[in-house]
Design a protein around this nucleic acid. Structure first.
Length: 573
DNA sequence: GCCGTTTTCGGCCCGACTGTTTTCAGTCG
């Protein structure tokens, strides 16, 4: 049995929560939390690394003790200290920590005084009015707990980045209407472009706080106001998302932007560098004694502590700070680098627009090329193409290309990878195409071994070009299928194939960590929208964000190339 | 529990807001 990194991380997180509830040394708790984060941030399997003889104490925040505990988990699947603690403190207390306003101290009190073990117990105690009678609790706390529980029941998930975009942009636009608001930005995980967003953190620089906060509180999408002070306020919108607003003076804007963009771990790391240089860093700026020496802009803050400017998408404390020290940060890809889209559908299968309409839309975007990739016959549900209909489409594309002035339409299709790893159309048809996108659309539940072999066998076909949506996950809906990515990426590298970063907002597949792994192992990606309509081409921006989170440069992505270069690059050897 | 160009012991990021207090603990980001 292989133990996966997420399982190790989950054990440490559970241990940290329970220790905290028991009132353990907070720094010990932090050490376990940190270990969970470090482990889950490693793209390679820790059990494999151990088998290769790696010394885990080389990892940041992992000392002799934690290295030993990780080994124990890998070898036995168990963490004895966690079992001991769970024997005396119920594991389900973890659930209670998710409620807003309940931290370790209050959870401990609920458990010890009222024998509350889980959400159900809590609900009953609340109904009987027991909670408000506890010392430190009161009527308002009781109400807050009830409303947070209600919210958890209704919206347990973080929302997708694309959904957050429309909500955030509308709010930012509203806030900018006020002349007193000098600079307005949505910070937090939104600005780091994480694939899902928990809440929105809005930062404003102004010299009239009262007016700004008042304006904010009159936004017509606000459902409830949770807190309001002279520099910050928190509300919940009708859409269910929480918004935290913070107002700072202009001379602090850069410092505050770093602080509120996070991640928390990135901030802790840069504050530590500040401390070494005898500076104090907070959201108001950088201080030497009482004197402010930086704070107006992010660039100034980073430079003052000897770091190159770090793009928000990289601020996860995954090694970016070390690179910034050496001025070796990658130049991240931008939307402007993209010259074409290699995955889109027409109304021949499940798209909504004709070949001609899709081509015209791509031409308007200034693209040099697109690949038309309709589904193949195995996907009968959408009338996937067979040999005959694909050959007809090829003819239509030839005809269209003769008329188009700026764009070239590449002949392609999204070929189903069948269960045995064969492709859904015969080679004699595939050889007529410029490239293929090969994807799994069936048999998601194979074992990791079988699924991996299936894909690698497909790559053995000389007409395989790009592996489409490689993990098959749908964010918040469907988990990735079991597959060994390291093996897949190695196989792609050996066979001169490519992986897709599918830019559909509910896919964003590959994820950031696997983008990084592909780059490390020398495999290039195609960032493609999988557009099913002309509007679908606009999803490219979300693919770019994910790519930036995976540290990709224009060099790492094949559809940043001119058509001639692309043709050379995708030619199988 | 981790870690060291002030350290192998004694630190570990830091400030705002709420609610329950009557000066501050708890929580959050």
């Amino acid at each position: 049995m292989t133990i996966h990194n997420v399982e190790i991380a989950e054990k440490f997180t559970r241990l940290a929560n329970l220790l905290e509830i028991e009132g353990a040394n907070p720094f010990r708790v932090r050490a376990y939390r940190n270990a969970a984060r470090v482990i889950s941030g490693i793209t390679k399997n820790v059990s494999d690394l151990l088998a290769q003889g790696m010394d885990l104490t080389e990892l940041p925040g992992i000392g002799d003790d934690l290295a030993e505990k990780i080994k124990t988990i890998v070898n036995t699947g168990e963490l004895p200290i966690l079992q001991q603690i769970e024997a005396r403190t119920p594991a389900v207390l973890n659930e209670l920590m998710k409620i807003e306003g309940l931290g370790p101290k209050r959870v401990q009190k609920l458990y010890k005084k009222l024998k509350i073990h889980n959400l159900k117990d809590l609900e009953q105690a609340l109904a009987k009015g027991k909670v408000r009678k506890l010392a430190g609790f009161g009527e308002k706390t009781e109400k807050n707990i009830q409303s947070s529980m209600q919210h958890i029941r209704e919206y347990s998930q973080r929302i997708k980045l694309a959904d957050a975009f429309s909500i955030a942009n509308r709010l930012v636009h509203y806030l900018k209407l006020l002349p007193e608001a000098k600079q307005v930005e949505c910070a937090g995980s939104f600005r780091r472009r994480r694939e899902t967003v928990g809440d929105l953190d809005i930062l404003i620089s102004a010299n009239n706080n009262e007016k700004v906060i008042n304006h904010f509180l009159h936004y017509n999408e606000i459902a409830t106001i949770n807190s309001q002070g002279s520099t910050r306020s928190a509300v919940r919108l009708h859409s269910g998302i929480q918004v935290d607003l913070r107002v700072v003076p202009e001379e602090s804007y850069g410092a505050a932007l770093i602080y509120f963009t996070g991640s928390k771990d990135h901030n802790i790391a840069i504050r530590k560098i500040g401390i070494k240089k005898k500076f104090k860093i907070n959201e108001y700026g950088m201080f030497k004694g009482k004197k402010q020496i930086a704070g107006k802009s992010e660039e100034e803050m980073y430079h003052k502590i000897g770091l190159a400017y770090i793009e928000p998408e990289m601020r996860e404390d995954r090694g970016e700070i070390e690179l910034a020290k050496k001025n070796q940060l990658p130049k991240l890809i931008t939307l402007a680098d993209i010259r074409g889209d290699l995955h889109c559908h027409t109304n021949l299968t499940d798209g909504t627009a004709s070949l001609e309409t899709m081509a015209a839309a791509a031409e308007l975007l200034g693209y040099e090329y697109i690949a038309i990739t309709d589904h193949t016959q195995h996907l009968a549900m959408v009338h996937g193409v067979n040999k005959k209909s694909l050959l007809a489409q090829i003819k239509a594309i030839d005809k269209l290309n003769a008329q188009l002035k700026k764009l070239i339409v590449l002949k392609s299709c999204e070929v189903d990878i069948l269960e045995d790893g064969s492709l859904d159309l015969p080679d004699e048809v595939l050889k007529e195409l410029d490239l293929t996108v090969c994807s799994i659309h069936s048999k998601f539940n194979l074992s990791a071994k079988k699924q991996t072999e299936r894909v690698i066998r497909a790559m053995d076909n000389p007409y395989f070009t790009i592996l489409g949506h490689p993990s098959g996950r749908l964010i918040n809906e469907r988990k990735a299928y079991q597959i060994n990515f390291e093996k897949i990426i190695h196989a792609a590298q050996e066979r001169h194939c490519f992986l897709e970063l599918n830019a559909q907002p509910d896919r964003l597949d590959l994820d950031d960590a696997h983008c990084q792994l592909a780059k490390e192992l020398g495999v290039k990606l195609a960032i493609s929208t999988d557009a099913h309509s002309p509007e679908g081409f606009a999803f490219m921006q979300f693919g770019i964000y994910q790519a930036r989170r995976g540290w990709l440069t224009a060099e790492d992505v094949i559809n940043t190339r001119s058509l001639a270069e692309l043709r050379k690059l995708i030619k199988r050897k």
